[in-house]
Design a protein around this nucleic acid. Structure first.
Length: 300
DNA sequence: CTCGATCCCTGGACGC
DNA sequence: TGCGTCCAGGGATCGA
């Protein structure tokens, strides 16, 4: 489940691997998750990959204006554009030798000018790929909230404390903060000792400050560890991350809290499984916690 | 504004 | 061994 640290890891890998490469041709598989598949085939060939950026959970492959005098002057390719890539739940993107057999669920192959293929695979197709020129791209991106790594204390506080929604929902809301998903929301709440079902407006200034701090620290550490590989996340080198070994709450139902040994519990908050320590992160009045499963969880 | 429900989709885990 | 069921979840959408 690629969130900010995983996407950052992939973006860094791609930056090393494919910067400056030119796209020669495009081969598509299933296209129901691609905004406009024809646009890919039409506009990508001939373009150079000039930069790879991360924006929240998106990657932006910045493309050169079309090169060569063979292009039509009126097809819009004279301007720069971007390939927007969202990995969804199971998306992977990596360059590989074009002779290598394509894996199952490979839906986009970009043949590069060095003979390799940049391949996008995504079993569940929850991802998204779009070719966007400057203006439509800017229109899309302006809907998103602050970068959690850059957001100031004041801005974080106002984005959270002015809201009636649950803190977990706010952390997951890409319009509030861009890039946080279920894992890092739970991890930062555990570290800040805040229950996921607390309302944003219930947080004290101190708690908001603390939460911003834990969120940033956890995201930074996770990036250093190249992200969390909890299901099948692999980076642009095909390598798993390591941060899952450092999870303190996520996925640890029934296991001992690292601080107080109380068993970690699970509840549904904002429609998502949320893991927390019932002692360190006191449950708000009347909030339903799922009973501990009967089957003993595997050891940790 | 905020909520929950529903859908998209496949693979893995689990129960029988 | 095999089959059915449930669950995972980012995001869009719709109704309450």
């Amino acid at each position: 489940m690629p969130e900010l640290p995983e996407v950052e890891t992939v973006a860094r890998g791609l930056r090393r691997a494919i910067l400056g490469r030119r796209i020669v041709s495009v081969t598509l598989g299933k296209t129901d998750f691609i905004d406009d598949p024809v646009a890919l085939e039409q506009h990508l060939p001939g373009r150079q990959i000039e930069a790879v950026e991360r924006f929240g959970k998106f990657m932006l492959l910045r493309l050169s204006a079309a090169a060569g005098r063979d292009r039509l002057p009126t097809n819009g390719d004279a301007a720069t554009a971007s390939l927007l890539v969202h990995l969804g739940m199971t998306g992977q993107i990596a360059p590989m030798p074009s002779a290598q057999p394509r894996e199952k669920h490979t839906h986009v192959c970009l043949l590069l000018d060095d003979g390799r293929e940049l391949r996008y695979t995504d079993a569940r197709r929850f991802g998204r790929i779009a070719y966007l020129t400057e203006v439509p791209l800017a229109e899309e991106l302006k809907e998103f909230g602050a970068d959690p790594l850059e957001v100031s204390d004041t801005e974080f506080s106002s984005r959270i404390r002015g809201r009636r929604a649950r803190i977990k929902a706010l952390l997951l809301d890409q319009g509030v903060l861009r890039g946080v998903g279920n894992i890092y929301a739970d991890e930062s709440l555990w570290r800040a000792k805040i229950h996921p079902a607390r309302l944003g407006m219930q947080l004290s200034k101190e708690q908001a400050k603390k939460l911003r701090g834990t969120l940033q620290e956890i995201l930074r550490r996770a990036i250093v560890m190249r992200g969390s590989s909890i299901s099948d996340f692999l980076d642009a080198e095909g390598e798993p991350g390591e941060y899952q070994r450092h999870h303190r709450a996520y996925g640890r139902e029934g296991k001992a809290c690292y601080r107080c040994k109380t068993r970690i519990r699970r509840a549904i908050v904002a429609g998502r499984s949320s893991y927390f320590c019932p002692k360190c992160q006191p449950t708000p009045q009347g909030f339903a916690v799922l009973p501990l499963p009967k089957k003993k969880a595997k050891r940790d």
